Simulated assay, not measured.
Amino acid sequence: MIKNLSLAMTLFFTSTSVFTATSVFALDSLVTLQSQYSPKATADRFESIIKDKGFTVFARIDHQKNAEAVELSLPATEVIIFGNPKIGTQLMQCNQQVAIDLPQKVLITEDANNKVWLSYNNPQYLKQRHDIKGCDAVLDKVSHVLNTLAKAATTK
């Protein structure tokens, strides 16, 4: 009995240590801000702001409209794909696999309570996901810029 108890305690503490170590490094993969505007106004504001800042808008995808085209319904759901090759290239030079997450994207959604949200990939999560090394300054800049752009698009 004591052997089994000892083994059980060892397994418990080992699994708890592994779980704790894993969760300490886990980051939220998305940063989400509530918007004070309608979904369309939020998307329009974001697109206008990034164009004014010199970003390239590669695509704007209206999933709600696409759903309606196949006679399905979906709350407001729009994605804007945008970027700056000078910054994105620097990240890819640190780890080329980050290209799967570039260019950057923002997601604008409306929930069941008519609240509007703007979300984007957390650059620190991308660092962790792709084991990016040597690009901390670039990732910090991307984090700051995305936060600034998102706040400008969602607040009055």
Rank of each mutant, 00 (worst) to 15 (best):
F12P: 15
A76I: 12
T14W: 09
H130W: 12
T10D: 08
I50M: 05
T10L: 12
A112G: 06
T10G: 12
Q90H: 01
A112Q: 14
L102E: 07
F13Y: 13
V70K: 09
L30Q: 10
L126K: 04
S143A: 07
N121A: 11
N66A: 15
L149Q: 05
H144L: 03
Q97A: 10
A137P: 04
K86E: 14
T77G: 08
L5M: 15
T89K: 03
F12W: 15
G83Q: 06
P85H: 01
D101G: 12
L7Y: 10
K151E: 14
D140F: 03
N66Y: 15
K105E: 14
N114Y: 11
K115V: 05
K156T: 00
D62T: 10
L5Y: 09
W117C: 08
Q97W: 05
L139P: 01
V138N: 03
T22K: 03
A67H: 04
K127L: 01
I49T: 05
N121K: 04
G134V: 07
D52R: 13
F13T: 12
Q34N: 08
N122T: 06
T109W: 01
A137I: 03
L7E: 12
S143C: 08
D101P: 09
V70S: 10
A150G: 01
V57T: 10
V142Q: 06
P123H: 13
L149N: 04
G83F: 06
F12Q: 14
S15D: 11
D140T: 11
L33I: 06
D101V: 13
S143M: 05
T109P: 07
L72M: 15
S119V: 15
S23E: 15
V142H: 04
V116T: 07
T10C: 07
L74W: 10
P39K: 06
T56I: 12
L146I: 04
L5R: 14
T148W: 06
K51I: 04
S73A: 09
S35A: 06
S143N: 05
Y125G: 03
V18P: 02
V116E: 02
F25L: 13
A21T: 03
K53G: 10
D52F: 15
A152F: 09
A41I: 11
L72Y: 11
T22M: 09
K65M: 02
A59I: 09
K105R: 13
F25I: 09
D28P: 08
A43G: 14
S6D: 15
P103T: 15
T20Q: 11
E78P: 01
T16D: 03
T42G: 02
S73C: 07
P39W: 08
A137Q: 08
Q124Y: 09
S48W: 10
L139N: 02
F13K: 05
